[in-house]
């Protein structure tokens, strides 16, 4: 016999902190930004209540920022993936377990220093007295790296590599080594085993890494500001300018809402892919 439905006070108590954080730190700010995006800029900057779609109509004025972000963020993600996969593979498969910990720590160590300082250091590495000077010495004059999209991509790959390495590393490390032996046993050469077994089964880690990197890159503003010389303009830079320089909060909010929409679409696609493969992943973990 089922009695009348009762409140499960323990569950409510346990959930309330996360619900409060979710509402207070995620839902509320997004609602505020949404409301602001339909307003107008006050005379001295800031927000003035109104209901207008003018801010959204004005979005094409930041087309270049969207274009730069939507080309360089995916490109940076792919480059990160290409750089991170071999490293993660090496760490998970090739290295002895004793050296593995040491090497993993080496991957993490840069995080002990501020991301700002580390990115700033690249200004000197890519600047005229850095790599271009070395190239000049070996007879390749007049190479310019700093303040180009290339420099921004270098900064992205450098800064986001660990975020990509770890999910891939975890999926490769969890990979049942007997599956590789089974493939070997059934006549597949090591290369074919990699393509047919290792790669597909580590794909969930790679997708997760790409997702992490891509989402953070969509909001990136430090790397383009420092290594792009203000000429490689991301949505993040447009937002900083709109909120802190021209103090056009409504327009900034409209840009931010668009960014959130783009990210929601991306995350939805990601969840679809991963949920479809979940059964496979659970099996892979056995």
């Amino acid at each position: 016999m089922q009695g009348p439905r009762k409140w499960d006070w323990t569950a409510i108590l346990l959930m309330s902190p996360s619900v409060a954080i979710f509402l207070g730190l995620l839902v509320m700010p997004i609602l505020v930004v949404l409301v602001l995006s339909f307003g107008e800029r006050a005379e001295a900057g800031g927000y003035q209540a109104a209901f207008t779609f003018a801010q959204y109509a004005n979005l094409p004025a930041r087309w270049a920022a969207f274009r730069n972000t939507l080309t360089l963020a995916p490109l940076g993600t792919v480059l990160c993936l290409l750089a991170a996969y071999p490293l993660a593979y090496y760490l998970a498969v090739k290295v002895s377990s004793r050296n593995r910990l040491l090497l993993l720590i080496l991957v993490i160590v840069p995080f002990w220093t501020s991301f700002l300082i580390r990115t700033y250091a690249w200004i000197f590495i890519l600047g005229g007295k850095g790599l271009p000077a070395l190239l000049d010495m070996i007879g390749v004059p007049d190479v310019r790296f700093i303040n180009t999209p290339f420099a921004v991509l270098v900064g992205i790959v450098y800064g986001y590599l660990p975020l990509m390495v770890f999910p891939i590393f975890v999926s490769l490390e969890r990979l049942d080594k007997r599956l590789l032996e089974a493939s070997d046993d059934l006549g597949a050469s090591p290369a074919r085993t990699f393509w047919q077994i290792t790669l597909p089964l580590s794909a969930p880690g790679a997708v997760t890494g790409c997702m992490l990197v891509f989402i953070l890159l969509m909001g990136e503003y430090l790397i383009p500001a420092l290594l792009g010389g203000g000429k490689v303009f991301f949505i993040g830079n447009a937002l900083v300018d709109l909120f802190l320089q021209s103090r056009n909060w409504p327009f900034g909010s409209a840009v931010a809402v668009s960014l959130v929409v783009i990210m929601l679409v991306t995350v939805t696609l990601y969840l679809r892919v991963t949920l479809r493969n979940r059964g496979m992943r659970d099996q892979a973990l056995v």
Partner: peptide
């Protein structure tokens, strides 16, 4: 190496490929 030997193995926990269906597994060799 194993992949050039005329022997095949049934593994303790079967080691079936989780990303392939039954026919995909059976036809792998």
């Amino acid at each position: 190496p194993a992949y050039r030997r005329p022997v095949n193995m049934v593994f303790q926990h079967y080691a079936l490929f989780p990303h392939m269906d039954v026919a995909g597994n059976v036809g792998y060799g």
